[in-house]
Design a protein around this nucleic acid. Structure first.
Length: 222
DNA sequence: AAAGCAGGCAACCGCGATTAA
DNA sequence: GTTAATCGCGGTTGCCTGCTT
């Protein structure tokens, strides 16, 4: 197996370091299938992998997990990252919890690559986000007026698309914070330490809601 | 075509928190 | 209550790749 390694892979103190090979990935996947996640330090002696528990966990969490989302960060995800970073700072794992399928490492890398060096990029992203908000706002207003029309004119309103109606009513009634005066929720000066558990739950919820399937995200360019 | 450079990202490191013995 | 093992997180490093000169 050793001869198949490539790149800067080396062995230090009996542990292999550097890029993972497909064979190593396969061993790790099999291991998790059999034993589940956790007990990472047992991976080595159960599979024969010359990888530390730490390295194995990292590989699984950041790359092999089946629920990971592949592909580029969307405008919506970007908006969430910006918003939550403004609020929580570098608490990447927490931010990642609001973006299912994305890892803390991925988000951290994205932030550093796109926003750390230049506030201009933050401004651009912010502008994109505001455009998106405007579009959504218009859609919601339209939907709200449709709901009102339905409410006044028809007794059978809930029979017509009841599910959609419920969803849109819920959105109309619960959206205001995200649309807060066209501004960034994250612009608040409130530090993460000052946040209440209710706020925590609120952001958790909205983070998840915003992760509903994207609707034609514009390509992100800087 | 080749060299230099910068961006992107996978992986490592150190450290604090948590859990088990 | 103490210690060791394990886990999880944030920061950092360094390879790869694509673009520019």
């Amino acid at each position: 197996m050793e001869g198949q390694y490539y790149g800067w892979g080396t062995i230090t103190d009996g542990w292999r370091k550097g890029p993972w090979t497909p064979q190593e990935d396969q061993l790790l996947i099999e291991h998790v299938k059999l034993h589940g996640e956790g007990r990472w330090n047992s991976v080595s002696w159960l599979t024969g992998l010359k990888r530390s528990g730490k390295s194995s966990r990292l590989r699984w969490v950041n790359y092999l997990r089946p629920d990971l989302k592949r592909g580029k960060i969307t405008a919506k995800e970007e908006a969430i990252i910006l918003e939550l970073h403004a609020r929580w700072g570098n608490r990447w794992s927490m931010i990642a919890r609001s973006l299912p399928g994305r890892t803390d490492n991925e988000i951290k890398n994205y932030w550093r690559t796109h926003f750390k060096k230049s506030t201009k990029n933050v401004e651009k992203a912010r502008a994109r986000y505001l455009r998106l908000q405007q579009e959504q706002k218009q859609q919601l207003l339209l939907c709200r007026s449709n709901i009102m029309k339905e409410e006044t004119s028809s007794q059978t309103q809930m029979a017509i698309m009841p599910k959609e109606m419920e969803e849109m009513t819920f959105l109309c009634n619960n959206m205001p914070l995200m649309l807060h005066e066209g501004g960034f929720v994250g612009e608040s000066t409130t530090s993460s330490e000052d946040r209440t558990s209710e706020e925590e739950a609120y952001y958790d919820t909205w983070g998840r809601l915003w992760n509903l399937d994207d609707m034609g995200d514009p390509t992100l360019t800087f």
